[in-house]
Amino acid sequence: MTSTTLHRDSIEPTLFRQLLGCFPTGVAIITTRTADGRPAGLTCNSFSSVSLEPPLVLFSLRKASSLLGTFAEADAFAINILSERQDALSGRFASSKIADKFEGVAWRSGPLGMPIIEDCLASFECSVHARHEAGDHDVFIGEVKHMSGGPADQALVFYKGAYMMLAESLRTLVIQGRLGSADLDQAYRTLYGTLLRLACEQATEGEIDAIEAAVDAIERHQPDDSLAQRIESASRFFSAIAAAGHNEALTLMAQTMTTILRERMTHVIPVRPRPDLFPLRRKVVLCLRRRDADGAAAALDELITKLRTGGDVAAEPGRA
Rank of each mutant, 00 (worst) to 15 (best):
F16V: 02
G110A: 02
T256L: 05
H132F: 08
F16C: 04
S148I: 03
G295S: 04
A240N: 07
L67C: 11
L300I: 06
T259N: 10
G310D: 14
V139Q: 00
G311I: 11
D216T: 09
M265R: 08
P55E: 09
A88H: 02
I141G: 06
I175L: 10
S48D: 00
R171H: 07
A74H: 14
E73R: 09
R289C: 03
L52K: 04
L277N: 03
P270M: 06
E133K: 09
D301E: 11
L15R: 05
F278T: 08
D153V: 02
T34F: 14
V128Y: 00
P151Y: 02
A298D: 14
F93L: 12
A35E: 15
A213E: 15
F158C: 03
P270H: 13
R272D: 07
L300T: 12
A94S: 15
E201G: 04
D100S: 14
K97F: 11
D292C: 06
A74E: 08
I79C: 14
T43I: 15
P13V: 00
E103D: 13
G113N: 00
A254P: 14
K306C: 08
E205A: 06
V144G: 09
L191H: 06
Q255G: 15
A254F: 04
R291G: 08
A106L: 01
A244I: 07
L195S: 09
S95F: 09
C287V: 07
P279S: 10
A314L: 10
L15G: 05
A297I: 10
A72L: 07
G142L: 05
S49V: 08
E12C: 05
S239I: 15
M164C: 07
S48R: 02
V105Q: 00
G149H: 04
A213L: 10
I269K: 03
A155N: 02
R274E: 14
L250P: 11
D216E: 09
K101Y: 05
E73H: 10
S66N: 12
D276A: 12
A76D: 15
H267W: 15
I117S: 08
H132G: 00
S235H: 14
G142Y: 01
H7T: 13
A130W: 00
F59Y: 11
V50C: 05
T204L: 00
L173G: 04
A40N: 07
R38T: 13
S127N: 08
R108Q: 07
F158M: 10
V128I: 12
A35H: 13
L250Q: 07
L67A: 10
A162G: 15
M164D: 04
L19T: 11
R319W: 06
G311M: 05
P111C: 01
A78Q: 06
I79Y: 04
A35K: 12
P55S: 12
G206P: 10
G206W: 06
H267R: 10
P279W: 03
L191S: 12
L121I: 14
E143W: 05
H267L: 12
I208F: 03
G91T: 01
